[in-house]
Every structure is written in C-alpha cells, then in structure tokens.
C-alpha cells in the first residue's frame, strides 16, 4: 500500500545570516611567480589585475582553512555550531576523495552530527552550495546550513605555465544559511555546458599515477612511471573562457536579476566570481551596471580562488565597509564544467 507520508515543514524563506573568510598567511607577489616563467609584473597585472595572492602553507590544509572561515561565519550569524543541520563544502582541490572533507570540518567545528558532504562545481560551487542550502532550510531538512567554498589551487598550478601560473590563489569562504521571514535569496539561474568541458580542465586524471595493478589491465611494470608524467594542473583556453565568461555570463546575471524582480537600479553590490579583473571589468560594462553599484575586485590581492572567491569577496566588502548588512547583491559564479550559478541575495 502507498502510505501517507507527512509533509515536511521548513522556514518560509532562507537568508545568508553570516559570512567568514580565511586567507593563508603567506602573501605571494608577482615577483615570486616570475621565478619560473618569462613574464613581467606589468604583463600579469594588465592581463589579470592580480598583484598578490595567498598560498597556503603545509599546515593550512583545506580542512584547517575551512574551520577558520566557518568559525567566523558562525560567530557572525550568532548561532552555535550544534545548531547546524548540514555542512556543504565545495572544492576541487581536496586531494582525498574519501571521506568527504565536510565530515571532518563538521566534527572539528563541534557541529555534532549534521549531514555533511562535498560538491564539485568549480568556480560556481558557492552558488550551487547556496542553492542547496536554501532548499534544505525551506523544506525543513536543516534549520541552519554551513556552506563553504575552499581551495588550495596552488596545488593544482603549473608554475611553469605563463598563462596560468599567476592566476590562482588559496583560501576559504563560508556562510551560514538560515530561516528568514522575507525572501532574501532569489531564484538561482544555473546550468552547465558540458560541450565546453575542454576549455577549463585538470590536465591529467589521478589514475595516471597508479603504479599498483589495474583491474583487468596492465601491471605497474608495463605502465609509465609516475615521475615521467607531468603533475596535473588546471589549464584553460583563455580567449574562449573570456568570451564565455563576459558575454554569456552577463546574460545569466541579467536573468538572475529578472528572476528576482530586481532592477539594476535597486542593486547595491555586484560580486562576480573573482576570476580575472579583465573579466570583471568587461562584465560590468556589458551589464551596464549603474556607477553607484559597488563591484567586488578582491582578485587583485587574492587571485582566483574558485569556489572560495565569492564568499571571500563578500566578507571583505562587508569588513571594509564598502558594503553593508541589508544591501542587495548580485552574485555569479562560473567556471570549469562549464558550469554557472547566479542569484540575488540580501547581504548579512
């Protein structure tokens, strides 16, 4: 028989209640990048707008950075860790696929036994996590959700590739999503374009390094020695990515504004994924945003931190007073997949 199942009951709406960030202590200027590539500080700045980035030390693991960022977000939200019902971590640079790093983070912050899992959505990861969190809060499967974007992209950077060596940074950004009386996170406009998967990717799959016997395959003695294989890194087709990011993503950003019923004139803050200053500048121009809209330009001193970039930029805008609690912000993430997610939020 089909039994009657009790309906779930969640909060009417969800909001971002608090944000926190962690930037590794070591600041890496362009001069250090130039040790391995034939380039110049001027070239790097003109192509990317990046002057410095943070690279994590051995102790600043994905979990450690996440715990630091989460602690600040929890304090900012004014809740206690045990109230968190779910932990969602977006990352592409945690090198142990099992177990999910989310469970370790949940344990270390003292959250008890929340649902905890990792997601892989590249530079759109924060928006994907935020969308999941909103759903959990409004359907009642969690009252408070911790969403973290965290990366150690220095581990996936080819220091000898002059097109990308300067681009990536490390860090963690976290938010607490919880119940709200008013809509405070708009509809998400999100999607994927798998036909463009080759434009941003990790160069080599991890199993290329396998030296133990392969199921049904060759023994290690018949395989290329791992030291002969170049270590994997993230590569991208610069022009194709630039065109997609600026012109296609401007359309997605506009759709997110329309879906939320917010006009550009109502917007206070624009927080695009911090991929590259040139993308940000062109996007602002293409979107024709009013001049009074504050635009996040954290990439200059943080580099591209993929899933961490939006919450890190959000935290910095609020900490420096460039944005304030209650401001209306358009956030958009886009990257490897290709994937994207855009939404309008009220800042915590």
């Amino acid at each position: 028989m089909t039994a009657k199942i009790k309906p779930t009951k969640g909060a009417p709406y969800a909001r971002i209640m608090g944000v926190g960030g962690y930037r590794p202590t070591r600041v890496v200027p362009n001069e250090e990048i130039l040790k391995h590539i034939d380039s110049s500080d001027e070239w790097i700045r003109s192509r990317s707008g990046i002057a410095t980035r943070h690279w994590a030390g051995p102790e600043e693991t994905v979990a450690v950075m996440s715990v630091e960022a989460a602690g600040k977000a929890i304090a900012d939200a004014g809740i206690s860790p045990e109230q968190i019902g779910a932990v969602v971590v977006s990352t592409v640079s945690h090198f142990k696929q099992t177990p999910a790093v989310a469970t370790e983070i949940a344990h270390r912050i003292g959250a008890g036994r929340p649902a905890a899992f990792d997601i892989s959505a590249g530079c759109a990861g924060f928006g994907y996590g935020l969308t999941l969190a909103k759903g959990m809060v409004t359907d009642g499967s969690a009252e408070y959700v911790l969403v973290i974007g965290v990366e150690r992209l220095s581990d996936l950077t080819d220091l000898e590739d002059r097109a990308t060596a300067f681009l990536f940074g490390d860090g963690a950004g976290a938010v607490i999503v919880g119940p709200a009386k008013e809509p405070s996170i708009g509809p998400t406009v999100w999607g994927s374009e798998g036909d463009k998967a080759e434009t941003i990717k990790q160069t080599i799959a991890w199993d290329a390094y396998r030296t133990t016997p392969v199921p049904g395959g060759d023994g290690p003695e018949e395989r290329t020695a791992p030291e002969a294989i170049r270590y994997p890194a993230i590569t991208q087709e610069g022009q194709a990515v630039f065109r997609w990011a600026v012109f296609e993503m401007a359309k997605v950003a506009q759709q997110a504004l329309d879906a939320a019923g917010v006009s550009p004139d109502d917007l206070d803050v624009f927080i695009p994924h911090q991929a590259n200053m040139r993308i940000i500048d062109s996007m602002v121009k293409t979107l024709k945003l009013p001049e009074n809209v504050t635009v996040a330009r954290d990439v200059e001193t943080t580099g591209n931190t993929s899933a961490a970039s939006i919450p890190l930029a959000m935290e910095r805008l609020l900490a420096t007073g460039q944005a304030k609690s209650g401001d209306t912000a358009l956030v958009i993430g886009f990257g490897a997949g290709l994937v994207y997610a855009a939404t309008v939020v009220t800042l915590p």
Binding site: R47, G238, Q239, F242, R243, V246, F247, R278, S282
Partner: peptide
C-alpha cells in the same frame, strides 16, 4: 588577446 575577444564580439 583578451581585448581581441572584445573586438571580435
């Protein structure tokens, strides 16, 4: 190379 993309579009 990036400005070229803007010119092309």
């Amino acid at each position: 190379s990036l400005s070229m993309v803007e010119v092309v579009v």
